[in-house]
Simulated assay, not measured.
Amino acid sequence: MKPRLQDVADRAGVSMKTVSNVINGYVHVSEAMRTKVLAAIEEVGYRPNLSARNLARGRAGMIALVVPQLDMPYFASLSMHVLEAADEQGWVVLIQQTRGDAEKERAVLSGRFAQRVDGLVFSPERVTAEEIGQRSDRTPLVLLGERASGGVADHIVVDNVAAGKLAVSHLLDLGRRRIAMIGAESGGTVNRRFDGYRTALAERGLEVDPRLVEPVSRNLGEAGEAAMNAVLARAAPRPDAVFCVTDWVALGAIRSLHLHGLRVPEDVAVVGFDDIPYGRASTPTLTSISPDRAAVARAAVASLAAQQEDGREPREIPAGFELVVRESTAGVGGAAFVAPAALDDATLPFGRARGDHHHAR
């Protein structure tokens, strides 16, 4: 016979109501009880009828995740974590990409999806906070990134100022003083990672040298290579370190440095941002700021679940990050990085640093 809800309750030694609460993701169930019931579900092989459950709750059983580009490793990884978090809530995920097209983003805000969705996780690049605030669609919404927030919806955000500061402070602690910044601006919008770069320099009594700062038009390795070429062509003396706005850009910068006969990290140390898998297999392996993508995904899905129950005011929800030190700053056999004392808990509430022993050895 097909396992029933009662079979799960009998195996776990709890009421059917408790089993139902766990299956439906109600937050007031203790973690210990949730673990116990989930184990019983697996043991008896119970599989809830999601369609019937969603129908009873007036839900579509689907949420949408909309990102700029799925071929970017950060968003591919984020999508995986959103799928996992949504599955725990009984949601299927509809994934779309906009490629940063403003009209496609506006269509997303208007609720133009092939199927009805219970919520929307959206990483915009073009639409403004004002446009988001004026949307007529009432589907629960949570925003990612820093392009548009303004208190118009729940917003999951990594503190990019603190993260940039941590990255550059690491380079300063290594004795580097001529630190370049690749990707400081994009589309005329000042990047908050640049603010962290500038803050870290200022705290050590250093000024930003405009010759060491170069924007990129797109998040591509080719753009990073071209930007690094431009810095090396005009900056004398050359930089002894570079902080790149993403890992893709950093890998392009490393290629430029190699083609100019410069060694990484002996001549120029390099730090990226995003901790994409390719950085762990590059030569040298790449030191990078690693945002907690799993935490971002869990917070986003939890936000949508909470919005199903109430109409609370939008919130800023922080997500953590850390600096993973590898060969591009520590060298082969380099020691694991210890967070500098200047970055105390009051200054950097969500950031920390660690050495990647597997890759930096």
Rank of each mutant, 00 (worst) to 15 (best):
K2R: 14
D7S: 07
G13N: 07
M16K: 14
T18P: 05
V19L: 05
V19W: 09
S20T: 13
S20R: 10
S20A: 13
N21V: 08
I23R: 07
V27M: 07
M33R: 13
R34H: 11
T35L: 13
K36R: 15
V37S: 06
N54C: 05
G58F: 08
R59L: 14
A60E: 10
I63M: 03
A64V: 03
P73W: 01
Y74N: 04
F75K: 05
A76T: 15
A76L: 09
M80F: 08
H81T: 01
G90D: 09
G90R: 09
Q97K: 11
Q97T: 15
T98Y: 11
R99T: 12
R99I: 05
D101V: 11
E103C: 01
A107V: 00
A107F: 00
V108P: 09
L109F: 11
F113M: 09
R116K: 15
R116C: 07
S123M: 13
E125S: 14
A129Y: 01
E131P: 02
R138S: 15
T139D: 02
L144Y: 07
A153S: 11
I156C: 13
V158Q: 14
V161K: 12
A162M: 08
V168K: 02
H170S: 12
M181L: 00
N191H: 08
R193Q: 12
R193S: 01
D195Q: 09
E203F: 04
R204C: 10
L212V: 05
R218S: 15
A223V: 03
A226L: 10
N229Y: 13
A230I: 09
A236V: 14
P237Y: 07
P239G: 00
D247C: 04
D247A: 05
W248C: 11
V249T: 12
V249H: 06
R255D: 04
H260V: 03
L262K: 08
V264E: 05
V268H: 00
V270N: 00
I276C: 03
G279R: 02
A281L: 14
T285E: 08
P291F: 10
P291S: 07
V301D: 08
V301S: 03
A306C: 02
P314I: 06
P314Q: 00
A319L: 02
G320P: 03
F321T: 03
V325Y: 05
R326E: 08
G333E: 05
A336N: 12
F337I: 14
P340M: 04
A342Q: 05
P349V: 09
A353K: 00
